[in-house]
Design a protein around this nucleic acid. Structure first.
Lengths: 206, 206
DNA sequence: CGGCGTTTCAAACAATCGTTTGAAGTCTAG
DNA sequence: CTAGACTTCAAACGATTGTTTGAAACGCCG
């Protein structure tokens, strides 16, 4: 590998793939559409990633490595400071995703790609995500268990399952609420995060 | 159209398509896979439905016509009897979907297909669903507005948006909770509905 | 400047895609 | 029993799919 040239090509492919996967799904976006959008040669995908499936995994890895790190970092800070509450722990989960969404170019579409992964029954993809990033959900679940000692394990898992659904759906912006014309993207998503934390905390507590 | 023969073929195609769309997505499931699973000739799809896109719409229509009717029927009964509460209105929305899921053969996968529709950015599909079944969500939203008069319109819509996400995700069974070995499918889904109503009511009320 | 990994490129691969065709088959009404 | 509408069928259409190929272009080091 060289230092300069392949960087741009790899990154351009990943960006275009992310966008098209969000818009048309993994099967719906062809490599020709991806390479055309990235303005690179068709063969570059197989040269840099080996196959379409590997490209899909790499699209996840590029974002999830840092997202997971930040989430766990915030969670650890809360636990260390003794500030853990339903609201702050939910915030630790949501805010890094929010910041990713607001990152210049492409961050917001990634949450849609992530939501698509839930819809896919594809066991390869689910195993990849579970093996590499499952520990994040595990740590958060442990934190919630401490904060909701009155709930037995089964009750807790039901509620967490529902909460993950609400978070996934909302962060992917699947809903009907549109950003108001005068409102910035940042303000819109911060509003969403605020309502999401409030709603989900109440549901967990209920 | 004849009375007997085409019925079986049409229905077999719809059933197989529903199952494969749930498993692999609309783009991921080919007509050859569908017709092979349905044990009919490849050309039968275009003969009976005209195109793949029309087949997709028909998969939705077959289930949503009755599902919407039952939901509105229950909602009207509640309003007429003066029994409307957050819990009963949520029940009116969820229970018909639950019954569909428990219907013999295929009902349970349809909720997964429906959830995929949310993930698709496809504007044709979204318009089709919004035009034909949007009034159901409208009626329920009006009912919730009456039950939550302390919330202004914007606050209410945020919460309903989040609630729809939680319901969609959960009914599609995207979560991590697996049915316990001793437990029947019916018992599992009834548990889910119970927790879903409890969680969502608390979130709306919060 | 010459040589050598690295990357890009146009072209082609077999396979599969949604759709169309026209003939063969099936059924019912007269 | 026959006429005619309806349905099924094998086969093929051109377009598009992911992937591979070998040569051309590139960039760096000696």
């Amino acid at each position: 590998m060289q230092h300069s040239a392949q960087f741009s090509t790899r990154q351009r492919i990943l960006g275009a793939a992310e966008e098209l996967f969000a818009e048309r799904g993994f099967a719906g976006a062809s490599l020709r559409q991806v390479t055309a959008a990235a303005k690179v040669n068709l063969a570059a995908v197989n040269y840099h990633f080996g196959s379409k499936d590997n490209l899909i995994e790499e699209v996840f890895r590029r974002r999830l490595d840092e997202l997971s790190r930040r989430r766990l970092e915030r969670l650890a800070q809360l636990e260390a400071a003794g500030n853990a509450s339903l609201e702050t722990v939910l915030d630790a989960f949501i805010t890094p995703a929010l910041e990713l969404s607001l990152d210049r170019k492409g961050g917001s579409v990634f949450m849609r790609v992530l939501a698509r992964a839930f819809a896919e029954h594809n066991s390869n993809l689910r195993n990849f995500l579970s093996e590499n990033y499952g520990h994040v959900l595990k740590d958060f679940a442990a934190s919630f268990a401490r904060l909701l000692p009155q709930l037995d394990k089964e009750e807790l898992y039901w509620r967490l399952d529902i909460a993950v659904g609400a978070l996934t759906y909302a962060m992917a912006d699947f809903g009907m609420i549109q950003r108001r014309s005068g409102e910035s993207e940042r303000a819109h998503r911060e509003q969403m995060a605020k309502h999401l934390i409030h709603f989900t905390a109440a549901g967990l507590r209920a």
